[in-house]
Design a protein around this nucleic acid. Structure first.
Lengths: 237, 237
DNA sequence: CTCGGTGAAATTGTATGCAATTTATATTTC
DNA sequence: GAAATATAAATTGCATACAATTTCACCGAG
């Protein structure tokens, strides 16, 4: 049970350590699909888990709520977000807007060290994909998302990087809800194709490749399959 | 002293009324340049102003910090953000990524009612621009930003809309810091040009027009003019 | 057995208290 | 008078207390 991928830090400017720490833990749990959409997050429970008071848990939950990963319902508490099909479409539309541009900029700014990083990351992705077991599966999902985040990091715009972080996490929730074959996380070797375009310094190609990649991910979704929606979410109450 | 423009609601899903209310009030104050970059926001002071405890003020400040409008320094408090030139560049780069796409989508989705809305908004903008006095000036600045937000609203993607809200507010801070002629807020009649492209259902044209518009806004900035930086920010401590 | 209601337990929203830290003021020293 | 230091005030970070609300379990009526 190794950490699989070097965790990309959530934010460089760590303001308040502890709530930030909780936020990152919950963020990772969401991306790795340990926390299913709709799951209730009880403040005292989380607090005991991290040995802090509700105050700091609250701060973490509010941050997550702000980026759409958690839904806070007044007097009812915080729940892992349960994206509707419409939200899901908006998430992928947003990605189609941002990611090609990120790919272009990453192509320009990429250094040699970045290439190595991408290459070793891709190897890791393939290794995890080959492995069996739920843990490897989770790690693979996370690694798949991390690839996109690494791209954003190389692009060198911290604002877009933060937007992407939100979109990746929300995508993870969407795939958990509406994903079909699970192939959505793999998407064959498209990441390698993207890296190829990057190395060739072909920004246009990188942009179009990643655009198709996003299309493929979304094509694997079935928005009708609202699955076992907690009903309250299904009726949008 | 009329409200000038119908205030675009900050968020549809009002979670906790009171901190949300404070957030919106501070947001508006930032966009209208009533609150200068670097201004300290003392929790008890804000609390007394809104007649709430520090707890709920804190929540509001943390939200604003999360979207980059406020900087919270541990044990020192919350300050209106003081964007560095580098941050400023990233803000405008992000806008160049998102806004043309928003314009394209708005072109497709725009209805008759929207056209009327835009037209009356433009009239209002020009009226405010013609008026004298600091209040009219503030209202004009706000209205100028609202135009972009209306565009985002028409585009029909709430996620991108939220991103834009953040970027508009942060742009306002940047312009307050590095703006030269003040013409940055006006940018002549470029909003009208954008609307023209929209009405003509020419998405490409709308996209390129808004792109140039953003360029013009940024051209009017002078990043050297770090102005009277609070020194602590100037030295980035 | 299901439906509706009642009370207890759990949970959240907010205010407040206290320690830790920072900021401002006063005082000393040179 | 300026710099350095000590002291007091202001402010934040966090935990906790308490009221308001929701959730749950139980029970009785139909």
């Amino acid at each position: 049970m190794k950490p699989a991928t070097e965790t990309v830090p959530l934010r460089d400017d760590a303001q308040d350590d502890r709530s930030q720490l909780i936020r990152e833990a919950l963020y990772n749990a969401i991306v790795e699909r340990r926390l299913a959409p709709g799951t209730k997050l009880i403040e005292t429970e989380v607090g005991e888990l991290f040995d802090v008071s509700r105050t700091v848990v609250r701060a973490a939950l509010q941050m997550l709520a702000f980026e759409g990963l958690v839904k806070i319902e007044r007097n009812r508490g915080a729940f892992i977000a349960y994206p509707s099909p419409d939200e899901a479409r908006q998430i992928f539309e947003s990605r189609r807007v941002i990611e090609p541009e990120i790919a272009m900029r990453a192509t320009e700014r990429m250094a040699m060290a970045d290439i190595d990083m991408f290459r070793s990351h891709l190897r890791e992705e393939e290794r995890l994909l080959a492995e069996r077991g739920p843990n490897a599966r989770r790690a693979a999902i996370k690694a798949s998302g991390d690839f996109h985040l690494m791209l954003a990091a190389v692009a060198g715009n911290q604002i877009l990087e933060r937007f992407m972080r939100e979109l990746i996490a929300r995508s993870s929730l969407v795939i958990a809800l509406y994903g079909q074959s699970g192939a959505s996380s793999c998407a064959r070797s498209e990441h390698a194709d993207i890296l190829g375009a990057l190395i060739a310094r072909d920004g246009k190609k990188a942009a179009s490749t990643i655009l198709h990649h996003i299309d493929h991910i979304e094509e694997d979704l079935d928005y009708r399959a609202a699955g076992n929606a907690p009903l309250r979410q299904a009726l949008r109450l």
